[in-house]
Write a protein that binds this DNA or RNA. Structure first.
Lengths: 134, 134
DNA sequence: TATAGTAGTATCCTTTTGTATAGTTAACAA
DNA sequence: TTGTTAACTATACAAAAGGATACTACTATA
């Protein structure tokens, strides 16, 4: 009842306003549990950026490594493997010489885009804020 | 020009559609850089959950530890210190006996709520999906 | 006196993350 | 012939993150 409304129609601001007087309601517990579930899948230094990059189209291993600044081959292949296991990206090998491999975001992976888009928006604003301080 | 439009008015879905043919445009680079900036501040296993919890009202150390399932005192105090340094939460000590300390989200911290709200929404859906598979 | 609660710190240890370097297979370019 | 690209894996190692346990100082309660 309470929770349904929040999830379907309300904004984060409203959650806070409504929840403020009821600190340990099941709403709060559910909210935090859901966050935890999401973090289990996308936490770490790289996954979000990888998915963000693949949101602009399928890419090959080397393209991704160039896109995701600072990642090494070992980490990239490990992270891609985990994303594949969770059904967020697909991996396709073409038998060209030398082999090429393409990574592509799945429909399910695309459901993460609102999160990533919000992160990008926040990062843009944050950079402006930091810059104007110096 | 291109970028302004995306940031101010477009959704994540549209970014993808528009960006799909232009994989390494500055738009993509800026998008990924912003994500990276955000991750610098909220990455790790706990910070998002802590802010999520504080979105329901100010809390004391022990309340937070009970809320954020699985976190130890050491991690909690470390993460809170970092959040404080970045201006996302405030720490207030009351000279009661024994001392009580209250943590509260700042206005700036609240600007992270859209990200966290999206994470919670996704986690809720993801749990449903996983559950229905077994 | 013993126990519990408050908000932590100190110490040690394990796990995860990351880095650097070398090697693989096959083809093409100089 | 040597070098280069592709997409990795293997190995070794270093650093960061996180966990477990003990401990502090103080008060209130049993």
């Amino acid at each position: 009842m309470y929770r349904e409304a929040i999830i379907e129609e309300q904004s984060a601001e409203i959650v806070v306003a409504e929840g403020g007087h009821d600190k340990n309601s099941p709403t709060c517990t559910n909210y935090l549990r859901s966050i935890h579930d999401t973090l289990d899948i996308i936490s770490g230094k790289w996954k979000v950026t990888i998915i963000g990059s693949l949101s602009f189209g399928k890419k090959r291993f080397m393209e991704l490594q160039r896109d995701v600044e600072g990642i090494g081959a070992k980490m990239l292949s490990k992270e891609l493997r985990e994303l594949e296991i969770n059904g967020l990206v697909t991996r396709t090998v073409y038998n060209t010489k030398p082999v090429t491999v393409e990574y592509e975001i799945t429909e399910y992976g695309k459901t993460l885009q609102p999160i990533i888009f919000e992160m990008s928006k926040w990062g843009t604003q944050h950079r402006k804020r930091i810059m104007s301080k110096d």
